[in-house]
């Protein structure tokens, strides 16, 4: 009984540590970047995706103007737009990160589209993405590769 209780406590301590490995947080200036994730790819023919959560704790607005990553020759910011149930995916020239707000690049909205993949993205691995902000400058974040059928970041939405 005591043994299993101890084992349970051990597990409870370990689980957050495991989850954290997938959920790197980076803070730069007033910005907190978290929950960066992508989906595994099959080969390199199809574009991959990039999702992330950006919290602006400051009192001045910022803008995400682009992304860069060694795994893709042509990474771009896109926005999924629904018009009468029809999805299209226009290029987003920049994404506003208003003061005091959290902006998520998440399924069905803003996302990074990683084109011209240099390598297959494998479940369980990670790769760096540099986010370019107008005020805060470049911020690099480690991006967790989740299974192709993942629906959200392994750590959930950042607060």
């Amino acid at each position: 009984m005591l043994k299993s209780l101890l084992a349970g406590m051990g597990l409870a301590v370990m689980l957050p540590a495991v989850a954290l490995a997938d959920c790197a947080e980076v803070s730069q200036g007033q910005l907190l970047i978290s929950a960066a994730w992508s989906r595994a790819t099959i080969g390199t023919a199809r574009p991959a995706v990039f999702y992330v959560t950006i919290r602006n704790n400051g009192s001045t607005d910022d803008r995400l103007t682009g992304i860069e990553t060694p795994v893709a020759g042509m990474p771009m910011l896109h926005e999924t737009v629904m018009t009468d149930g029809v999805a299209s995916m226009p290029h987003a020239s920049d994404i506003s990160i208003p003061a005091g707000q959290t902006v998520s690049l998440a399924p069905g909205g803003y996302h990074g589209m990683l084109m011209d993949l240099e390598e297959e993205l494998k479940d369980g691995e990670s790769f760096p993405v540099t986010l370019k902000f107008e005020n805060a400058g470049p911020v690099s974040v480690e991006t967790a590769v989740l299974p192709l059928r993942a629906r959200e970041a392994a750590c959930g939405d950042a607060p």
């Binding site: 199809r46 995706v49 896109h78 069905g108 990683l114 059928r149 629906r151």
Partner: peptide
């Protein structure tokens, strides 16, 4: 279409679930 990085995999993930 499979070159679709956002809506299609997200929907297929729901269907898989």
């Amino acid at each position: 279409f499979t070159n679709c990085p956002d809506v299609c995999p997200t929907t297929m993930a729901e269907v898989a679930q």
